[in-house]
Structure formats: structure tokens, C-alpha cells
Design a binder for these strands. Structure first.
Lengths: 263, 263
DNA sequence: CGTGGTATTGACAAGTCTCAAGACGAGTGG
DNA sequence: CCACTCGTCTTGAGACTTGTCAATACCACG
């Protein structure tokens, strides 16, 4: 139980956060992510209350850290716009990417148990994130408990995502992993109402490689193969899924999306 | 919000569960896992209350399902004794193992978001598990909120474990993955006060292969190599870590254990 | 028009998968 | 007690895939 007590103490000053970003008020009411974020499920009339719980940060430039490995855990975050990668540094200095966060995705909650971030998080492009000081959720009554449960929901979804990641990693052929990866991105964009078959990847080939456990050259060759087989079209980071069906059969895996239809 | 409402409804009859197991009362007070489970952090005097929240199942035989993929989510579980594997079936019928659960580990929470289990769970050996009906945690006051937060903690730990799994999967050499795998098992046993350098694996080589994304033959060869290099001794599933230090350097990855010292 | 980061492509070495054959061990029934 | 069986584990050999090193192409930016 000390963990929780400590948590409340540590997060008592949400305005002085990692990196010293200052907070800026942007209304949840007008946020296009309001149905996917912590506010999901609450009535619109209550959104202003949620607004008080969430701290909207200034947009951050590509490459900026939101938090680093080992940083004290203060709160989780949600991506409002842009994209974020989370990673862990291996003892040999290599960077293993543990996740890519798109708008609506929550990250950083893995630090809750130890009150310390196991991952670092970096903006892949100019991004806006919202901080969710948990002590606010835990302190306030009634409706806040709704939000508290929403945290559970988000954690649960995160776990699905991580399972999905493991499934990709376990595939033995590079073009299968890439297929699954692209379909996963596509699903997530689709669920957020964005173009699902024609999009731009926010991360480098090297990032993808470190995410999928292979070299960037192999990533490149896998893309080349998918293009050759007319399953996708690609111009650098611009991707067009020409034949998602075959792509799905190729990856052979049912990604977690099937379990999140209603989300 | 509907999710939560529905959740409470669905879990209202904890005694009629998947597979029709009947519940049996075993006191949390005397459970050796009481400091690692849902009850962690609560004062001993309160354990009887926790007891009311948790449903202890009859021991289940090796191979029995605790729940299946697609099953309605009713509650998460904790392993009290034995071992459990979670898996997802791929579209080609193969079984990708997503986790091995040792005593004290929580599983099944990934089903919370969609109210449906994305994984199936099978006992690897004769095992006892406890069910944690969430509506109990969510309904009761005061101390139950402590337990509710403990669920968050456990989820957070689960996420660390999944990250750790991804790290293993991303390693490119078989003997590195196996090293990391053995160290992970070792750490988890250690944290539960069990022998950490001399233990018996509850799962088959084939299970390990499906967990680490490689064929069972390669698993076998990797074990052979570790034995040849005198890093471990092994007689089938009995494992002895002879040189954990070098094993750690070999895997090259800091596993999540470093973030859970206090757990 | 450079420049630095990123992406592609080639060639060879190294590691894994697959198919296949045995070895081992626990349990069964004669 | 032994032979048998089934599942598991090990080991071998060849085909295939990927990692690595290296060269080159591309692109956005100043």
C-alpha cells in the first residue's frame, strides 16, 4: 500500500514534470480523441470535469523525450496528435523498441508497479500528449471512479497490444512480421476514424527493425518483397495497402483488433 | 461506462464458471502467496475481508482449460500453485504462447477491455488458481479500493512481463533467448522465495519454442549449447544455473526484475 | 549545391527451419 | 518383470532466411 501513498505524494505537482514542460489548457471537449481516451464513456456534459483531471502539454518536437528509462513514475500519458515510441536500452547499448503509440494510445502505465519507468518515450514527430495524474483520478469521488476504471480498460487494451506485438515478433519470416505490423497500424488508424489503407508511417525503417527484432536491411527487403508481390505500394514512408486480404493471410495471425470492435 | 455495468452483471455468479469448476474455500490468511497477490499491501488483520473477495478453485489437472479464447471475460485469476500457460491460436491453427504463469502471477486481465478473453489459459501441471471477481472489488468500499488499486499494480507488472517477453523474442540468437528465458524464470522464482538456481521447468520444449518464436529443435540445440558452454546443467526439464552471471551477459538484456526489487 | 540522415541493394557468412531418424522415459498391459 | 507404446526430447543434413559489412541512392534541409 505504500506504493499508492507514495504515488499520491510524488504526483502532487503535475505542473513540474519530466523535462520541465509547462502545461497548457486545451479542452477535452473539443479533442477528437475524447471517445478513445480517459474520457471514454463519460457523458459529454461531464467532459469539463475530466478536463480538470487531465494536463495537456505543449506540443513537443520530434526527438524530445516525454520520459526516460528509470525516471520516477508520475503519471501515464495519452497521445493527442503525432506519434511516440517507447523503448528500453539493452545492456549492450542497443535500443529495443517496445511500442509505437498513435493518437489515442496510452503509455507509461508500465511504471506504476515500481513507481519508475521501465521504458523511455520519445516523440517520433511533432506531437501533443496529455498527462493523466493518477492521484486526481484516485482522489475525486463518484465520476472519477469511472475514470479510474477507464484506466483499467486502457491498461487492458495495452496488454492486448503487447500480446499482439509478441505475436508479430514470433513470426519467423520478415515479410510476415511486416505484414502484421502494417495491418496493426492500419487497424489502429481505422479505429480512430483515419484512412486505413493509405497512410504515412511516422517511424524509420530502423525503428521498425528494432520493434520487430530484425535489421533495418531486412525491413527494407521485406517491404521490397511486399511491393514486388503487389500487396502494398510504397514510396518511402508512404504506404498503400493494395491487397489487405492477402496481407492478412500472409501474416496468418488474428491481431487483437478483432477483440476491440466496439472500442 | 456500459462495459463496467455489463461487467458487474456478467460476473454476478462467480460460482458457475468456465468449465463448471466448483469453488472451495481456502483461506488467504494461510496462503503463501498472500504478499504477492491481490492482497498485497493490506494488513494481515484485513485478510479475512480479502478472503471474501477471492474465489479459490479446486485444483485442476494438467491440460485443463481455465478459460478459452473468445470466452466471456468474468474475472482475472491468480496462480496459487502449479503453472499455467496462456496462448492465442493463429489462423493457421498454430498455438502462439503468450505467457507462462507461475505462483503469484495474475492472468486473464487482458480480457477486461473487450469483456472477452483474447487468450486461452491451460494448466501445465496440477494447479490451483484463485478467481478474483472484479465486481466485488468495484462494489465494496474503503479497503476494497485498496484492492482495486492492487489490480492496477498487478496489471502494471503484467505489462512489464510482456515487455520482457518482447525483449526475449527480439533477440536474434536462440541461445540468447533461452538464456533470457531461464533468467526470467529464475528471477520470478527467486522473488517468490523459491530456489532460483536449481528448478524444474513446468513446460515442454515445444511450449518454450512457441513462446520464444522458434522451433522445438532449435530450443533443444540451444539448451545443448548452454550445457556445452557450462552455463547450465540440465537433465530434461531439471535446470541448474551454473553460471548465471555469464548467462546474464549472454542475454545482454536487463529483464524487468530490476524494476521489481521491492515486489 | 553540399551535407547528414535515411533507405535500398548486393554478397557472403552465419543461424534457423524443416524433414527425418533415433533416443529416452513414464506408463500400460501381458 | 518385460515388451510395448506414446509423447517428448535429441541429433543430423540440406535448403532457406537473415545478419553483417559495404557501397550506393535518395531526400529534406540549410
Amino acid at each position: 500500500m505504500e506504493n499508492i501513498v507514495q504515488l499520491a505524494k510524488n504526483t502532487s505537482d503535475a505542473s513540474t514534470m519530466t523535462g520541465g514542460q509547462s502545461a497548457r489548457k486545451v479542452s477535452c471537449t473539443s479533442c477528437c480523441m475524447r471517445n478513445l481516451c480517459i474520457a471514454a464513456g463519460t457523458e459529454d456534459s461531464f467532459l469539463p470535469e475530466i478536463d480538470k483531471l487531465v494536463v495537456h502539454w505543449h506540443p513537443m518536437a520530434r526527438g524530445r523525450h516525454i520520459f526516460r528509462e528509470g525516471d520516477e513514475f508520475k503519471q501515464p500519458f495519452v497521445v493527442r496528435s503525432g506519434a511516440v515510441k517507447t523503448y528500453q536500452t539493452l545492456e549492450n547499448g542497443e535500443e529495443q523498441i517496445t511500442g509505437f503509440m498513435l493518437p489515442g494510445d496510452v503509455f507509461g502505465l508500465e511504471g506504476l508497479a515500481a513507481l519508475q519507468h521501465a521504458n523511455g518515450a520519445i516523440a517520433l514527430e511533432t506531437s501533443s500528449v496529455c498527462a493523466i495524474p493518477l492521484q486526481n483520478l484516485f482522489k475525486i469521488n463518484v465520476e472519477a471512479r469511472v475514470a479510474e476504471r477507464q484506466v483499467l480498460m486502457l491498461l487492458s487494451e495495452s496488454m492486448l497490444r503487447k500480446d499482439s506485438h509478441a505475436m508479430m515478433l514470433a513470426m519467423n519470416k520478415a515479410h510476415e512480421r511486416i505484414s502484421a505490423f502494417l495491418l496493426d497500424i492500419s487497424d489502429r488508424l481505422h479505429r480512430r476514424g483515419l484512412a486505413a489503407h493509405d497512410f504515412s508511417l511516422p517511424m524509420s525503417r530502423s525503428d521498425i527493425g528494432r520493434f520487430l527484432g530484425m535489421s533495418q536491411e531486412t525491413v527494407s527487403r521485406a517491404f521490397a518483397k511486399l511491393i514486388r508481390d503487389k500487396l502494398i505500394e510504397s514510396n518511402g514512408r508512404n504506404i498503400k495497402l493494395v491487397n489487405p486480404g492477402t496481407l492478412g493471410k500472409l501474416s496468418g495471425y488474428k491481431l487483437d483488433s478483432s477483440f476491440l470492435k466496439s472500442a
